Structure formats: C-alpha cells, structure tokens
Simulated scan of single mutants.
Amino acid sequence: MSSILLLSIRPEYANQIFDSNKTVELRRVRPRLLNEGDLVLIYISSPTKAVFGSFKVDTIIEKPIAELWEEVEDKAGISSEKFYDYYQGTKTGIGIFLKDIHRFSQPVDLHRLRKKLPELKPPQSYRYITDKQLRIVYSLGECSR
C-alpha cells in the first residue's frame, strides 16, 4: 500500500524544487512509511503557509553525512556550510530523490485547507494523509492526479 505524505518545506527550498534546481529533499529522519513511488504533497511553511504541489519519490538513501554530501551537493540546493549545520550532531542523513514534480494551478493556502479539512494540521516536518484528504487537496489546487 502506498503512503501519501504532507511534507513541510521552507519557501526557499520549495521554490528550488518547482524551478527544477533541487531534485533531492534532505531530512535528518526518514519518514518510516515512505517508499519509492509514494506521493508527497509539498506544504510550504511560514510565511507562505500553502500546499503548492506534489512529487513522487524516486529513491531514498541513508548515508553517513560526508558520503551523502558527495552524492547530493549539486542536487540539494544548499551550500556545504548549511548542509553540515543542518546535520550537526547526527551520523547519517536521508536524501529523498524527487520525480514527477507537479505545481498546482492554484496554491491551497492554509485558510482554504482548514475550511475543507479542519482535522488536517500543517506538519512541523511531515504528516501522513488519507486518499480522501488527498482528493480534497487536489480539487482545491485544481490539479488532477
């Protein structure tokens, strides 16, 4: 069974995804139910606060920090200084490689999202959502899956 993830991403990094300058999302912890081929909705965090689109998971890697940097340095949209700051205190890091990136024709801002799905809280990091919630978000974003 596939998982559907609502992933919170900072505006600067989300914009790089939609501009095709960032093809791997970095995480300190792997979402345990996330696998290749799963769908991820991109929630752009404050100050934007909206779901802007989605991507599918191509592959997921977990490697020691220095090895991860070697593999993602030209794909992560981040400087080495920020990369090593982000992973400070951890031995391994996660790289989620993206494919099939789609931008909604109309972003789903937090107000509209809460109106239709009051039970769905924006995640600090990530949250799993149901097929029904996904259909509602897609209808709000005027994007067919």
Rank of each mutant, 00 (worst) to 15 (best):
M1T: 07
M1N: 05
I4S: 09
L5Q: 03
L6T: 07
L6K: 02
L6H: 02
L7Q: 07
L7S: 07
S8A: 14
S8V: 01
R10F: 14
P11Y: 02
P11M: 07
Y13P: 05
A14F: 00
A14E: 02
N15K: 15
F18I: 01
D19L: 14
S20G: 10
K22F: 07
T23Y: 10
L26Y: 09
L26Q: 05
R27D: 03
R27S: 00
R30T: 12
L33S: 12
L33W: 06
N35T: 11
E36F: 03
V40H: 06
Y43M: 09
Y43V: 08
I44T: 15
S46A: 14
P47V: 08
T48R: 15
A50F: 09
F52N: 14
G53S: 05
F55C: 07
F55M: 03
V57L: 02
D58S: 14
T59L: 09
E62A: 07
K63S: 12
P64S: 15
P64H: 14
E67W: 01
E71D: 13
E71G: 04
V72H: 01
E73N: 14
E73R: 15
D74H: 12
K75F: 11
K75S: 11
S80L: 01
S80V: 04
K82M: 12
K82G: 04
F83H: 04
F83E: 00
D85G: 06
D85K: 11
Y86F: 10
Y87S: 06
Y87V: 01
Q88L: 07
K91Q: 13
I94Y: 06
I94R: 09
I94N: 08
I96M: 02
F97S: 07
F97L: 03
L98C: 02
K99Y: 01
D100R: 12
R103F: 11
F104W: 08
P107F: 00
P107H: 03
V108K: 04
L110W: 14
L110E: 13
H111L: 13
H111P: 05
L113C: 04
L113V: 04
R114Y: 08
R114F: 09
K116W: 10
L117V: 04
P118S: 06
P118R: 05
K121I: 13
K121Y: 14
P122K: 01
Q124D: 00
R127K: 08
T130A: 02
T130R: 01
D131C: 09
K132T: 13
Q133T: 03
R135S: 10
I136K: 10
I136G: 03
Y138L: 13
L140S: 06
G141P: 01
E142K: 12
S144R: 15
S144C: 14
